[in-house]
Simulated scan of single mutants.
Amino acid sequence: MAGTAGSARSGISLAEPRDFLALLKPRVMSLVVLTAITGLMMAPGSIDASLAVVAVLSIALGAGASGALNMWYDADIDAIMTRTAGRPVPAGRIEPRTALAFGLALSGLSVMVLGLAANWFSAALLAFTIFFYAVVYTMGLKRSTPQNIVIGGAAGAFPPMIGWAVVTGGVSLESAILFLIIFLWTPPHFWALSLFKMKDYGRAGIPMLPNVAGEAATRFQILLYSLILVPVGAAPFALGFAGPVYGVASIGLGAYFLWLAFATYRMPDADPKMLPAKKLFGFSILYLFALFVILLGEAIVARAGLL
C-alpha cells in the first residue's frame, strides 16, 4: 500500500475505470436507483420513457457524486478501517483532489440535467440530497455525534421523493411514507453493522453508538427503531397505495425483521460471534430491497392496466 500511495503522490496515476466506478459506491447507487424508480413509477401522472431514463440516470449520477465526495473527505479514516482501506483514495490509486473534482463535476452535471429534462423542483431536491450527504452527514455529523446515522439517514431516504417529484413536480403523503421507510430502516441496519465492527470504528475515531453508549443501549435502540419501522413498512398497504402482495410481504418480512431485532436485543455484551447482529444486518438489506421491488412491480402492473 505504501508503494501505491507513493506512486499517487509522485503524480503517476494508477487509476483504472473500475476505480472511478468504485468512487460512485455502486452498491449504494443500486438502492438509490431502485427506490427512485419506484417513486417515479408510483407517482400519479404519465411520463415519457426517454425522460424517465434520463431522470433516473441523473439521480444515479447524483448518488455517485455523493459517494465520491464522501470518499474524498473520509480518505483518512477509510485508510484505518479494514472494511474501507481498499477504496481507491486511501489505497492511493486515485488522488484526493481527483476524487473531489470528480464528485463536484458529477454533482453539477446531475442536477443540471435533471432540472432541464424534468423540473427544477426535483433538481433542487437532488442538489439538497447531495449537499446533505456530503456536507451535513460526512463533514458534520459522522465524526461528531453518535446520532450520525439517524440524522444522516435522511440523505439515503430522499431518492423515492425525487422520483415522485420528477413526475408530479412536488411531494405527497405517499412519497413521504416511502421516505420514512428508508429513514427508519437506516439506524437498525447500520447499528447492527457497528456492533460487530466496533473496533474498526473505534480505531477511526467515529462515535458510533456502540462505542459511545455501549452495546446494550445500541441493541435497545435497534429494537426500538425496528418496532417503529415495521408498521411504517406496512403503511403503503394500510393506506391503500400498495396492493395485497405488498401487504402480505411487508407483514411477513417485518415479522422476521422484528424477530432478528429481538434476538439482537437479547444478545449478551461482548458476544464473540454476534450472529444475531450479523443476521439482522444481512436480512435488513433483503428486507428493504424486497419491499421496494414489490412496490415497483405492483406499480408497473398497475400502469400496464393489469390491475
Score class of each variant (00 low, 15 high):
residue 48 D to W: 04
residue 53 V to H: 14
residue 42 M to G: 14
residue 20 F to P: 09
residue 35 T to R: 03
residue 57 L to Y: 13
residue 58 S to R: 05
residue 25 K to T: 01
residue 51 L to G: 14
residue 32 V to G: 00
residue 27 R to D: 06
residue 29 M to Y: 01
residue 64 G to C: 01
residue 39 G to K: 09
residue 42 M to C: 15
residue 47 I to C: 07
residue 22 A to E: 15
residue 65 A to M: 13
residue 52 A to E: 07
residue 38 T to E: 06
residue 19 D to N: 09
residue 28 V to A: 06
residue 61 L to P: 14
residue 31 L to G: 08
residue 57 L to F: 14
residue 42 M to W: 07
residue 37 I to G: 15
residue 40 L to M: 14
residue 45 G to K: 01
residue 31 L to R: 00
residue 30 S to D: 05
residue 32 V to I: 04
residue 35 T to L: 01
residue 65 A to R: 09
residue 28 V to P: 04
residue 54 V to G: 07
residue 57 L to V: 15
residue 21 L to I: 10
residue 53 V to C: 12
residue 52 A to H: 07
residue 62 G to M: 05
residue 62 G to K: 07
residue 36 A to M: 02
residue 37 I to E: 08
residue 34 L to I: 02
residue 47 I to K: 05
residue 24 L to C: 12
residue 48 D to N: 11
residue 40 L to I: 09
residue 47 I to M: 10
residue 43 A to R: 08
residue 31 L to M: 08
residue 28 V to R: 03
residue 49 A to C: 09
residue 22 A to V: 13
residue 59 I to T: 03
residue 50 S to K: 13
residue 36 A to Y: 01
residue 59 I to R: 08
residue 57 L to S: 14
residue 43 A to M: 10
residue 45 G to A: 01
residue 30 S to K: 05
residue 52 A to W: 08
residue 33 V to L: 11
residue 27 R to I: 02
residue 59 I to F: 06
residue 31 L to F: 01
residue 49 A to K: 10
residue 36 A to G: 02
residue 57 L to H: 14
residue 37 I to Y: 13
residue 19 D to F: 11
residue 52 A to N: 03
residue 38 T to P: 07
residue 53 V to G: 09
residue 27 R to M: 06
residue 63 A to V: 11
residue 27 R to T: 03
residue 57 L to T: 06
residue 48 D to C: 06
residue 49 A to V: 06
residue 33 V to Y: 08
residue 61 L to M: 15
residue 25 K to D: 01
residue 25 K to E: 02
residue 39 G to Q: 12
residue 19 D to V: 05
residue 46 S to R: 11
residue 62 G to F: 10
residue 54 V to M: 14
residue 26 P to K: 00
residue 61 L to H: 12
residue 45 G to D: 05
residue 28 V to Y: 01
residue 61 L to Q: 12
residue 35 T to D: 04
residue 34 L to D: 04
residue 60 A to I: 02
residue 36 A to T: 02
residue 48 D to H: 08
residue 39 G to D: 07
residue 19 D to E: 11
residue 25 K to Q: 00
residue 44 P to Y: 12
residue 31 L to Q: 02
residue 54 V to A: 10
residue 36 A to K: 01
residue 29 M to T: 05
residue 29 M to G: 11
residue 54 V to K: 11
residue 45 G to Q: 00
residue 33 V to D: 12
residue 30 S to Y: 08
residue 64 G to F: 02
residue 20 F to C: 14
residue 37 I to K: 07
residue 60 A to G: 04
residue 58 S to N: 05
residue 22 A to T: 13
residue 34 L to W: 03
residue 24 L to R: 12
residue 30 S to P: 03
residue 41 M to C: 11
residue 50 S to C: 12
residue 49 A to N: 13
residue 53 V to A: 15
residue 46 S to F: 12
residue 37 I to V: 12
residue 50 S to H: 07
residue 46 S to P: 12
residue 43 A to S: 06
residue 49 A to D: 15
residue 23 L to P: 10
residue 31 L to W: 01
residue 38 T to A: 08
residue 43 A to V: 13
residue 52 A to D: 05
residue 54 V to C: 14
residue 20 F to V: 04
residue 57 L to C: 15
residue 39 G to R: 03
residue 30 S to F: 09
residue 57 L to G: 12
residue 22 A to C: 04
residue 47 I to P: 10
residue 44 P to G: 09
residue 62 G to W: 08
residue 25 K to R: 11
residue 51 L to K: 15
residue 58 S to Y: 05
residue 62 G to E: 05
residue 61 L to T: 09
